[in-house]
């Protein structure tokens, strides 16, 4: 029996599924970490993803080209990012209210338009061009590893590249520094002559684009060319949790997404042993524990610094 569990867990299928599940979350998280760095609490990602998925499906269907669908989702992402920044940055509205409203708006508008365009049963029965799966030569021959890494939607591989590029952008470009400074200490940025508001706009637009991509992947890659109402299925919240978990570091956010993907895959594969609903709670609980840990360790750090100061003051 035990043998059986372990062989089910360490089946290549588990890890292949982990990659599949992690990718849309990771893409959105890459966007979310931009707004997080810029000091905007963005819980509207779920809506951004959902609208991205819809626009991608519509674009792909009407242009008869998956590439056009992706492009449409990215362009739309820019618009959504602008809209989000207009409220949160320019009008200084409550980020939470706007995020909440954006999610509900997305739910409503995509369902409404989907029914108007495709009818009650969504895109099933319509030919929405999707993205092909990619087999990596050579690697696919390696036992186990080949089954895990090869044969995914192209987005899975693009995400790896994007994680690296985002890491480069955030930590190794001047603008990355400015965006981080705009969230952590906007007045500092202002005193060195850069406009923190502008950085927040840029972060917000980037977030929109990444969420658009995540959505495009959902409808054109993950589900092979279909739009389903509410298909973002709380992935925006999961991505948000990843960002918090990873302290907005791109590779770490990807690892967090893999963790979610792993528990997702595990839940599916272990259904006969443990309820997938129970395994599903684990990543969220870990995120809460992480938050508590971060707060406590920050307090510890402050106390330690004060103690050092004290010793220097009164030797």
């Amino acid at each position: 029996m035990h043998n059986n569990i372990w062989s089910t867990i360490f089946d290549p299928g588990t890890f292949s599924q982990m990659l599949r599940s992690a990718t849309p979350v990771a893409l959105a998280a890459l966007g979310g970490l931009m707004t997080e760095h810029a000091g905007i609490m963005n819980i509207g990602m779920d809506g951004m993803i959902l609208m991205g998925a819809f626009v991608a499906a519509v674009g792909s269907y009407f242009c008869a080209s998956a590439a056009m669908g992706i492009l449409a989702a990215m362009l739309f992402g820019i618009l959504i990012g602008l809209f989000f920044a207009l409220f949160t940055v320019k009008l200084k509205s409550d980020e939470f209210i706007i995020g909440c409203a954006l999610n509900t708006f997305a739910l409503g508008v995509t369902a409404f338009l989907s029914r108007e365009i495709f009818g009650l049963s969504g895109t099933s029965g319509y030919a929405v061009p999707s993205l092909p799966n990619v087999t990596i030569p050579l690697i696919d021959r390696i036992p186990f590893v080949g089954k895990v890494l090869s044969g995914h939607s192209i987005f899975v591989y693009v995400t790896w590249l994007l994680v690296f590029l985002m890491w480069l952008f955030v930590y190794r470009t001047p603008m990355g520094l400015w965006i981080r400074a705009s969230g952590e200490s906007p007045e500092t940025l202002r005193t060195v002559g850069k406009n923190p508001e502008r950085m927040k706009w840029i972060a917000s637009i980037l977030c929109g684009v990444f969420c658009g991509l995540a959505g495009a992947h959902l409808s054109l890659g993950y589900l092979n060319g279909s739009f389903v109402e509410g298909m973002s299925a709380s992935r925006g919240y999961i991505a948000f949790a990843c960002v918090i978990f990873a302290a907005a570091n791109p590779p770490r956010a990807y690892i967090a997404a893999l963790m979610f993907g792993f528990f997702d895959a595990l839940g599916l594969r272990l259904q006969s042993y443990v309820s997938s609903d129970l395994t599903g709670t684990i990543p969220y609980l870990i995120t809460i524990i992480m938050m508590v840990y971060v707060v406590v360790s920050r307090q510890k750090r402050r106390e330690r610094l004060a103690k050092q100061q004290l010793q220097r003051l009164e030797p």
Binding site: F87, I97, I98, T104
Partner: peptide
């Protein structure tokens, strides 16, 4: 499609947020 009500609801929120923001500015 009934989802129109979600659209209307959220537009109310956006309008109110915009109005408050503009007034503050």
């Amino acid at each position: 499609p009934k989802q129109l009500y979600l659209i209307i609801q959220t537009i109310v929120i956006f309008c109110m947020a915009a109005e408050t923001g503009i007034r503050a500015a």
